[in-house]
């Protein structure tokens, strides 16, 4: 077995160092090495979005990123959205709007939606649907997810003004 690689990254604002094999994906390392199991494996080939995390602010399917590629990067997972005492407005709106049923796709949607709102604070319904089309949900039919993102966007805009 090849030697493991020694990597460092900033995960949810905290500097971390870890060892990984060259063949391990970022998703595997987050879940199995760093024990951040919020990102889920739904397909392991980039089609469901349940493993979405932010890599230097951009949404990626962490199952398609090799962990060694993340050396020196900033990574945000669903665990990094809330602060110590408050949920992120997206999380709060997902709860208020019943935008989750089984909840397994929810971490990916929340992270993807954050990426969307970071670049576009006032997206249309169509823009939300387009940006979230990388994330599959089998329970909700997307209606309440789209509404929750709209509500969170409005709440974030209010907070800024």
């Amino acid at each position: 077995m090849a030697k493991k690689h020694h990597l460092s990254a900033v995960v949810n604002g905290e500097p971390v160092e870890f060892l990984c094999e060259a063949r391990q994906s970022l998703l595997e390392v987050l879940r199995d090495v760093l024990h951040l199991t919020g990102a889920k494996e739904g397909c392991n080939n980039g089609n469901c979005g349940a493993c979405t995390v932010l890599l230097d602010g951009l949404p990626v399917n962490s199952c398609l990123v090799l962990a060694v590629e993340a050396d020196g990067c900033r990574i945000t997972t669903v665990e990094g959205l809330a602060d110590a005492t408050h949920l992120h407005p997206l999380q709060q709106c997902f709860l208020e709007d019943a935008a989750l049923q089984c909840g397994v796709c929810t971490p990916g949607f929340l992270v993807a939606a954050k990426a969307l709102l970071d670049k576009n604070p006032n997206p249309s319904e169509q823009e939300i649907r387009f940006e979230l089309a990388n994330n599959l949900c089998r329970c909700t039919g997307y209606d309440k997810i789209v509404r929750a993102v709209q509500h969170a966007a409005a709440r974030l805009r209010e907070a800024r003004t």
């Binding site: 879940r31 951040l36 199991t37 919020g38 990102a39 665990e79 959205l81 949920l87 909840g103």
Partner: peptide, 18 residues
């Protein structure tokens, strides 16, 4: 708001693979 909601939006809920 559902009782298990916070765990499910923060990534804390433990699914079988977790």
């Amino acid at each position: 708001i559902r009782h298990d909601g916070t765990d499910k939006v923060t990534g804390r809920a433990i699914y079988a693979a977790d």
